[in-house]
Design a protein around this nucleic acid. Structure first.
Lengths: 228, 228
DNA sequence: AGATGTGAACCAATTCACAGCA
DNA sequence: TGCTGTGAATTGGTTCACATCT
C-alpha cells in the first residue's frame, strides 16, 4: 500500500475516549520494542493494555490501517504512528507553578522527558523556595525555582504553551488567569478547584481526593455490612 | 413526604459518570455551606461545578429527590446526602506504599482527612527512609515510615481496605499482589503500569504523563502550523 | 411564578460478528 | 488459516423540553 503521508481514516475527529487510551498503548508498545518484540496481535496488545481486543482494533482504526491481516502489528511502526498522532514527536516546553511535594514529583518525573515534555520553568510564591535547583529531566539537567512574579517572563522565554498548576487551591484561579494572559493554551490542573477559562484554552484536571472518593463509593457497595 | 430511609431512586446502579462527578458537587457544596449559603439552584451549583444544569439535575435525581421545586436545594442537606452516598461518612483507613515526592504529597494532602480518609500506614523499600515521621492528616498527627516487609502487618493492624501505590513502575505489580493478598479490595495506582488483579478488586489509575499527552494532542490540533 | 425531576430524543462509545485480505 | 478492520447492534451518557409540584 502506498503510504499516503496524511493517513486515510484519521483527518478530523478521533474520539475522545480513544485519545485517552493512546498513551497507554504507546507505553506498552515502547516496552515491547525495548524487549525486542517485533510483532504483536491485537489480542496480545489489548491484554497488556487492559482493554478488549475489539476496542483496541477500533481505536487503532481511527488512526489508519497500520496492521497486517493474519499477522498483527509491527511494534516499532505502530509506536511511531501513535507518537506522531499524539504529538510526542514534537518538543513541548512546560512550566510548573507550585513546587511543593507534588510539584517536585512532577518536575523530576521520568516519564515526561522521554515523551517530548521539557520543564522550562518552575515557579513558586514562597520566597524560601526561590533559587532552589531541582533536577528536572532525565540526565542531570536542573531547573531553578523562580518567583511567581516572573511567570510571564518564564512563559515567553521558554515558549511554553502548556502550564501545570500544582499550587494550593486558593491560588489556582489567579495563576490560571496569568498563564492564559501570557499565552498558555493548555493547562493541567492539580488544585481542587474548577477553573474558569476562555473557550480556546484546554484544561484537564487531576484530583487526588476525587479518585479516592470514587474508590470508596465502590468499596462501600462491596461491604453490605454495618448500618447506622 | 415520608422520608423512606433507603431512598427511592437510588438502590442499585448510579451511573459511573455520575459517581465521578459527585465528589465535585460535594466539594463545591461544602464551600457554599462554609460561606453560609443556605439554598442553591441547579443553575448556580452547576455553574460552580463546571457542568450544565440539566446534567446536574439528572445526576442528583439518581440519589433521590432532595430538592424543592421553585426553590432549589438546601446546601447542608444535600452535602450530607452526597457524602452518605459516596461513603464519606465512614472512616476509611488507607495505606500508602512509596514515600517519594508523590507519596509525601499524598500523605499530607489536606483533602483526605476531611473526607474520612485516614492514613494508617506509610511504607517504603528504601532503608534510608524508614523511621521518617511524616505529617499525615490535618492537625499534627504524624505517621512513621515503615519497611515494605511490614506491609501485611500494617494493613491488618490498620484495618485498611484501600491501598495507594506510589512506587516506581517496576515495583508496582508486586506491591499490588501483596496488598490484594493482605485483603485490600480497592487500589489507587499512580505507577505507570497496567495492574493485574482479581475481579473483586477495584482499581483506579492516575497517570501524570498520560494527562499531559492528552493535552498535547489537543494542543497540537490547535496549532495547524509547522509540518515536517 | 419558578425551579425541580424526568420521559423522550439524541449522541458517543462499546461490543458483536464477520467480510476481506495477507 | 488467522487476524485485521469495520458495518451493525447495543449500551451508556447527555441534552432537550416540559409536566409537576411548592
Amino acid at each position: 500500500m502506498p503510504l499516503s503521508r496524511a493517513s486515510d481514516a484519521s483527518r478530523r475527529g478521533i474520539p475522545e475516549a480513544t485519545v485517552a487510551r493512546l498513551p497507554v498503548y504507546h507505553r506498552v508498545l515502547t516496552s515491547l520494542v525495548d524487549q525486542g518484540v517485533v510483532t504483536v496481535s491485537s489480542e496480545e496488545l489489548a491484554a497488556a493494555s487492559g482493554v478488549t481486543s475489539a476496542k483496541l482494533r477500533k481505536d487503532l482504526s481511527h488512526l489508519g490501517s497500520y496492521g497486517t491481516r493474519g499477522v498483527g502489528y509491527d511494534t516499532e511502526y505502530l509506536v511511531y504512528q501513535i507518537a506522531r498522532e499524539l504529538g510526542l514527536t514534537q518538543d513541548w516546553p512546560v512550566v510548573i507553578i507550585g513546587v511543593g511535594n507534588l510539584g517536585h514529583a512532577l518536575a523530576n518525573y521520568g516519564g515526561f522527558a522521554s515523551r517530548g515534555f521539557r520543564v522550562v520553568g518552575l515557579l513558586d510564591a514562597d520566597p524560601s523556595r526561590i533559587g532552589e535547583k531541582i533536577p528536572a529531566g532525565p540526565q542531570g539537567s536542573v531547573v531553578e525555582v523562580r518567583p511567581i512574579d516572573d511567570l510571564e517572563d518564564v512563559v515567553h522565554e521558554g515558549g511554553a504553551s502548556i502550564g501545570v498548576i500544582a499550587t494550593p487551591a486558593p491560588a489556582a484561579q489567579d495563576v490560571c488567569d496569568r498563564l492564559v494572559a501570557a499565552g498558555v493554551t493548555s493547562i493541567l490542573n492539580f488544585a481542587p478547584v474548577v477553573l474558569t477559562t476562555p473557550p480556546h484554552v484546554g484544561v484537564r484536571k487531576v484530583d487526588l481526593a476525587t479518585e479516592l472518593q470514587i474508590l470508596a463509593f465502590h468499596e462501600q457497595r462491596r461491604q453490605p455490612e454495618a448500618r447506622s
